[in-house]
Design a protein around this nucleic acid. Structure first.
Lengths: 195, 195, 195, 195
DNA sequence: CATGAATGAGAGTTCATTCAT
DNA sequence: GATGAATGAACTCTCATTCAT
């Protein structure tokens, strides 16, 4: 697959993203993608065999990488406490983003594709994030910016709280204040002073 | 619709519940239901026109009514604090129940059927629960079993935390300890002494 | 599947037979059958899932059973020699039948479906016929109508000679005289007097 | 078409032969050939428009020419009887060759392309062979190596017997002994002494 | 000549839905 | 009410064939 093809592939992923945003995961058919991309039926199949592949490509692009936030924080010589705040702020934005159907689509995808498999990209991403958070917390504790006896458990707790907030935000609705309260709770867990 | 028909309808809902538990929401076809019920294709249509109707009937049956827990507590002359504990315990059980595909099915359903509509049965049920909780909290505060400045906000916060836990439990996995910690957090919000 | 369905199934097989006669095996699509039967796309699938199933049903109907010829001969108290003549006559007719594309279709089918599998219906039918012939020959030898040292080998030899004639007849062309000569040869093998 | 092109064409035919050997005739697609040749889709079309053309080119290459065997025999000053034995031996080898899917492919091809047309390459080849055999027999009779009243009919009979054996060998299975017996039969027809 | 991306026709298959019985 | 055969729309997927480069 040459340079040109890669561009086309990217173009398809971009268009597909719109479709998934609009229609979720399961409702999307290859036909929908074909129409969104304005290409031929067969043409799409040159790049993607099914909507699962397509969705995984979209996920790959979309992933808000905790790791990347943490990396960029370290690059700026920020303290673990500062990095944690940056991370939480990033998550808050993601939670409060209106019409983030991709989160729901991801849940549909996860449900359809047997969530217990560990190579499930969402679970994988979740676990990566937990791991990155855990390291951050350990560092924070070592440098006495945080207090936490069980960094692993704390990282997990923080992560699924955020996950739950994302889902609730898209289904039942969550106020910015509610998100703030959760963030305070998380900071409390870590013995961080609330700003 | 006569007595006999009502019984049949109930029978169908019961069988449909099994199917939704097993396969989620979107993956379920009328054919699946027909096969599970061992009735004729046409027969099913006499009672339900589509899987949406069927799923709503199942939801109606399954709803773990916060209100009902609270009512039953009041009937036993339990204090607001005791009722709250009973409620949280009930929720813990629901969260930790393995293979609760119905929760995921409900999310699929919610997603497909435009969550913003207020007559969405899940949102409706959620709001009812929030309201019941709010009243419980207000009562608890009045009787000085709890401390809470904004009962409405607290009720909402508690509810979506639980909702988030349910989803996380079904997708990423949540330990019993994690649930306990969340319950402690909730009790902390309400100024309740941790047992 | 009720009485009515069985009739319909038979009707489909009948129509399908025409199609296979006309177009062979591989060229036939489910669509062709649908059109020949004048039924709906989905309707056909109620009875047959693919052309393989259909073709096997056609084969079942069409099978010129050696066994049945032999049975009917025995029922008429014919001698083994007479039965052999009846059998050979039956085969001659089959060989010389014009436009017997079904034979070719059967070869296409056999080729596509891995001829080595012993449950291949054509091979199975062939082996059944060989076995029936073998018994007939043994009986003929016992009653001194025939002379043959190795009945099994003779039966096999006769059978594939006929098979070869069928194919040649449909592809390169075989004269009635040529068939007669082969029959004489077979009778010679069996030490039978040529009429 | 230049020298280079001819070489490429030959290369394609060689690769195509493998594919036809492996998959028969009808199952083979232009895509299969393209992949086997490791050339571009468009590239193949410069040489062959469809699988029929390709298969005919393969047949042309593969033809076991009776004529050539006879020619080579004559070149070696062999007697008609010796040449006949050489020819029969050659055929025996061809019959007993395992996995000769090309024979079946040829039947598929013949069937698809209306066998009645006399320019059918297989029929043409068959008739050429019959003619060469006929001449050989006539010569054998003249030189008193053979005895045969109707050389034309004998040649035809021998040829389709062999053809039938080839098909049977590929579908139902034929033992070497059975082939020998057929050869003896043929030699008997010609009044040749059995070795 | 050669490439390979792109097209679109067409085959297979599944199901929601209807309707005569 | 109940049945289940029948319909047809919709979707997936594959290739022969073309054409700009």
């Amino acid at each position: 697959m040459g340079e040109k093809s890669l561009q086309k592939k990217k173009y398809i992923v971009e268009k597909a993203k719109d479709v998934f945003y609009k229609s979720g995961y399961r409702a999307v058919t290859m036909k929908d993608i074909v129409e969104a991309c304005n290409i031929s039926r067969g043409g799409l199949y040159l790049y993607f065999t099914n909507t699962k592949e397509l969705f995984e490509a979209v996920l790959e692009e979309e992933r808000i990488s905790t790791a990347s936030v943490i990396e960029s924080g370290k690059a700026k010589n920020a303290t673990p406490g500062e990095i944690m705040l940056m991370f939480l702020d990033e998550q808050k934005k993601a939670i409060l983003k209106k019409k983030d159907n991709l989160t729901m689509a991801a849940y549909e995808y996860m449900f359809e594709n047997k969530i217990l498999e560990t190579d499930n990209p969402i679970k994988k991403s979740f676990l990566e994030n937990v791991s990155a958070l855990e390291n951050l917390i350990k560092e924070g504790v070592e440098q006495e910016w945080m207090v936490c006896e069980d960094a692993a458990e704390a990282a997990k707790n923080i992560s699924y709280t955020i996950e739950g907030l994302k889902v609730s935000a898209q289904t039942i609705g969550v106020s910015a204040e509610a998100v703030d309260r959760e963030i305070e709770y998380i900071m409390g867990i870590l013995g961080m002073v609330i700003k």
